[in-house]
Write a protein that binds this DNA or RNA. Structure first.
Ligand SMILES: [Mn+2]
Ligand SMILES: [Mn+2]
Ligand SMILES: [Zn+2]
Ligand SMILES: [Zn+2]
Lengths: 165, 165
DNA sequence: AAACTCTTTGCAAATGAGTTGCATTTATTG
DNA sequence: CAATAAATGCAACTCATTTGCAAAGAGTTT
C-alpha cells in the first residue's frame, strides 16, 4: 500500500469525479483516506456519525458513486459484509486477508508476479473487469486469544446469546 | 476440473466424513456431484425439492457439515449469495468467474503457476486456511444479449419493478 | 422388535447488509 | 437571491443465512 496519501486530496478527488462536494461525501472520503485498513459501510457510518448527521443509506449511495467513479474499490467477503478502500492508496492491486473470527480485513503485500498473472487471465477472457484475491483464516490476534473465543455473530434470531454448550 | 466423478462416491464420501446417511444428505450430495457449475444453496434446494421433502434450513446445515468435513468448498460472491462445489472434482483449486449481471458462477482453468504462488503466500502467514481467486465481469451470454438487459434484482422494497427510467 | 439415546430435521422467527420510493433539503448556477 | 437538478433522510422492504426448539430419524442396545 502507498504510505502517504499524497495525491488523494479530498476536494480534488471529488472534482475529478464530477461529484458535488456535500458534507457527507467529504466525511466519507475523509474516513476512507485516513483508514489504516479497508472499511465496511458500518465502519464508515460509525466514524462519520460523530461530526454532523449522515444516514446509513446515504453512506451506501455515496460508496456506490465513489466506486462508479473509480475512487474506491469494493472488497467482498464471505458473510456478506463488504469493505472499501481508496484506489489511490492501496496500489498496486493486492490480495487481502479476512479473519473468519473477528471478521476484519487486512491488506497483504502484492506478490511480484501477481500483476502479470492477472493480466494473462484478463487476456484470456475480455469480459473480466475486476480481480480479487482473497485469503481466509484466523488473524494473529484471534489466534493468540483464548481458543474458545466466540465468533462475532451477524445473523440469527434475537434472544439470549448462547454462552457455552 | 476433473471430468469424471470417479472417486466421488456418495455413500463412501459420507462414511469417510463420519456423517450418517440421511435422505437429505444423499440428495444434496447427489446434486453437487452432478452439477456442471458450482451451486448456490437456492440452486440446491430447487434441484432437491423434487424428490422427497427437504427444508431450506436443512440445506444450509448440511452444506455447513460438508464444508467442515472438507467434502465441499464454499465460494463467496459479491451480492452475498455463496456457491458450493465438490472438492473431489474441481481439482486443483482454481479461480472462478462471477457474472455481475446474471449472477452465475463459472470455473476457470487453473493457471499453471497458481499453486506455487498460493503456496508462497501460505508460507508467509501460517494463519491462512483458504485462498480464493475471483474474477468479475459480464459473461458471454449477458454480453451478447441486449445491452439494456435488466440485472437480476435480489434486494429492495416490494412494488412495481422499474421498467425504464 | 421394542426401547433408548444421540442426531438430524422442520418450522417459525430473526438478523443484518444492502435497496428502493418518495418527500425534503442542498449545492450549484445564473 | 431565486431556480433547479442532484443529494439526503426516512421508512419500508428484500433476501441469504442463522438460531431455538420441538418432532422425527438413525444407529444401538436390550
Ligand atoms: Mn488493500
Ligand atoms: Mn470450480
Ligand atoms: Zn481476527
Ligand atoms: Zn451473465
Amino acid at each position: 500500500m502507498v504510505p502517504g496519501m499524497g495525491h488523494c486530496d479530498i476536494h480534488a478527488t471529488l472534482e475529478r469525479a464530477g461529484l458535488s462536494k456535500t458534507s457527507q461525501r467529504v466525511a466519507v472520503l475523509t474516513a476512507l483516506v485516513h483508514a489504516e485498513t479497508p472499511l465496511s459501510a458500518r465502519d464508515i457510518l460509525e466514524r462519520v456519525s460523530g461530526e454532523g448527521r449522515i444516514n446509513r443509506v446515504t453512506v451506501y449511495r455515496i460508496l456506490a458513486s465513489f466506486k462508479a467513479g473509480g475512487i474506491i474499490r469494493e472488497l467482498a467477503t464471505d458473510h456478506g459484509e463488504n469493505f472499501f478502500e481508496m484506489a489511490c492508496r492501496h496500489n498496486p492491486a493486492h490480495p487481502h486477508f479476512y479473519c473468519r473470527s473477528c471478521r476484519s480485513l487486512a491488506c497483504l503485500p502484492s506478490a511480484g508476479n501477481q500483476e502479470r498473472w492477472i493480466r494473462e487471465y484478463r487476456e484470456a477472457d475480455e469480459a473480466i473487469e475486476t480481480v480479487a484475491i482473497h485469503f481466509t483464516g484466523l488473524c494473529r490476534r484471534c489466534r493468540s486469544e483464548n481458543a474458545g473465543h466466540p465468533v462475532r455473530r451477524l445473523r440469527g434470531p434475537r434472544g439470549d446469546r448462547r454462552v457455552s454448550p
